[in-house]
Nucleic acid binder design. Structure first.
Lengths: 353, 353
DNA sequence: AAACGCCATGCATACGTATTCAATGAATAT
DNA sequence: ATATTCATTGAATACGTATGCATGGCGTTT
């Protein structure tokens, strides 16, 4: 390559283009190769030379060109965070839980020296091609919600293409790839167990406990575990399906209390549902938690602002973000990666006292 | 360059490397140049040829290598979103308002065909070098909060380096660069005007109205405007400084009501402050809105979940995100860019009825 | 028929770096 | 003194694309 300085007569201060490694090399009296190595702290180059080169680079405010470096090394040092929205949500809003996750992923990536590319995605796109093959990113974090069955084959494709990716969500048996997820069943169990321990007897469940919502289904199963353990028989009349919406929660609790006697607690599959339920109960002048105690799931910011503040099961998004990033990088670096479940924490607030 | 196919005898199905534009060229019976042009939909290449090339590329699942393309064209088609956190906030949390903004910026960037790089930043870093010079991004969106004076000289540096950037926040006179911001003064004016129109007479203000918090100062000035217009004299006893925290709001209202008689409304510089104030008032058994009406600012998600739901001034983050992205791209493309103020919307909820 | 212009394409090159390979000198072993 | 290793460096090259320039063919004008 012809550097600016391989034409001997180019005058330095006339340069109008970007400073490159040849310029540094010239200033340092070494070759471009040495500059490249020195800046990456390679032990191949003598310590003194290394420091001299680094000093000059700093002085000239030189920064390695990412595109060139990436092209040459066939890597990107970038992670793509692909978000899939809950299709039922308002187009203009992002699920608050995702946002919290996004924050922690951003931090974790930065700590590991990776750039983070954020994008909303549709299911019909070819992520592997668009990101990895196109050399935009070395790997992907998939942050979806709910109905994983709709993209099971998508994951299969990714795995076959040897894509590097990590999924946030429940681990499904036979699902390709690696997941990091909250132990939803344990969370449901602990919430329900707490309600039982505080003396509640007739505990309802609101949420989508069908196969198409594995996360919610697991929370439901945890609820069942706790009841069984306490010797309380499961009453199917107290179990109501509901979408992950405030309004669905309100409708569900309305039906529950009008069709059943003596309900004294509710465990809901999400905070959104719980909030809807609380509002409806207050509307009906049923006291929360005195008459009916409520525990939600997720610990979205609004939970603590509710009146009464909503007890809930918190997913540790800090840890989740870290794990997602670390495991993805492991996978990119060719190491063996295992899926992992994160322990949830029950946050007791006024809604279940 | 030596393509795989310039060595005549390489057998196609033995290739193990990435498919490149030479491969497509070979398959299409054209040159690599034509492939490059065809894929970018250049009118220079005949329509039939173009479609043929595109079809083959699609069939072979070929994607242009972003690094190579970027290196050659000296561009990135990427925008960096740099977040500066409120230093008073818990390290693990992100300001919910930022998150909403992040969502809309992400969308807007995608619509314009730009990738989005997200990062938290410290003030002591050289963003221009790290992002633009390093060819990670073509420009930056700065999303800060509050104390802009601390980085005024930073902006000056950026401007001198001819960096491309757009700032979210108040327009300060003499400030370099372009800002998109909410018309904070108008928002404060409308909030206060609404309180007056509903018959409130003694209206307090809580928030940092010092020079170091220009956004809040402007909201305060709007409050003053409305009072003046209504012929109500400004009572400095009703104006209290407070940081942008729930606890500060609680402390402030406590002092206000214990030191003053007959306060019947409060306009706060942010929702967080308002929420703290409401909680404190309820704690003191002062009815909101019957005895004291409250209006906040920002419309964070929790505002609508409060009890009573909090009236507030909403900043249109959808529009803001779009404008930030559009203006930044304009600037990148060398066009003239003007700063712009966004009209806020008063959201009337139960807290000020 | 000659001259000209336009359309479509190909050739050659440069973007800026990381890395392989070879070369140098010094130090050590024989 | 010669052979061998080691430490350090430089020369050359490839990563995959976009684009300036040159070319060839064809239609239009004079």
């Amino acid at each position: 390559m012809l550097s600016s300085y391989s034409h001997a007569e180019v005058i330095p201060f006339m340069k109008d283009t970007r400073i490159n490694s040849f310029d540094i090399a010239h200033r340092a009296g070494v070759s471009q190769s040495t500059v490249s190595r020195a800046l990456r702290n390679s032990p191949l180059v003598n310590k003194e030379t290394r420091e001299k080169v680094q000093a000059i680079a700093r002085e000239l405010n030189y920064t390695v060109d990412k595109n060139a470096a990436n092209l040459r090394s066939q890597t990107t040092h970038t992670i793509a965070l692909l978000l899939f929205e809950d299709p039922t949500a308002d187009d203009s809003l992002i699920n608050p839980f995702f946002l919290s996750m996004l924050g922690s992923v951003t931090r974790a990536a930065a700590e590991r020296g990776y750039d983070l590319l954020v994008s909303f995605q549709q299911l019909d796109q070819d992520w592997h091609n668009e990101y990895e093959v196109a050399h935009r990113a070395d790997g992907m974090i998939l942050l979806g919600y709910g109905d994983y069955t709709t993209y099971a084959d998508k994951l299969q494709q990714l795995a076959e293409a040897k894509a590097h990716f990590v999924i946030w969500g429940p681990m499904m048996s036979g699902q390709p790839g690696h997941s990091i997820g909250c132990d939803n069943r344990l969370g449901g169990y602990e919430a329900c167990k707490h309600l039982i321990a505080s003396g509640r007897k007739r505990i309802a469940f609101i949420g989508d406990h069908s196969d198409s919502a594995p996360e919610f289904l697991l929370r439901y199963q945890g609820y069942c575990d706790a009841l069984r353990e306490a010797g309380i028989e499961l009453d199917n009349n107290l179990v109501t399906n509901a979408a992950n919406l405030e309004s669905a929660g309100a409708d569900a609790i309305k039906n529950l209390v009008s069709n059943n006697e003596g309900i004294d607690a509710v465990f809901t599959a999400s905070d959104l549902i719980a909030i809807g339920a609380i509002k409806e109960l207050q509307h009906q002048n049923i006291a929360v938690p005195e008459q009916i105690a409520i525990i939600g799931f997720d610990d979205i910011p609004a939970a603590s602002y509710m009146h009464p503040p909503l007890s809930t099961v918190r997913q540790d998004t800090q840890l989740a973000g870290k794990l997602l990033v670390h495991k993805l990088i492991q996978s990119i670096e060719g190491e063996q990666v295992d899926s992992e479940l994160i322990k949830p924490n029950l946050i007791v607030r006024a809604s279940c006292l």
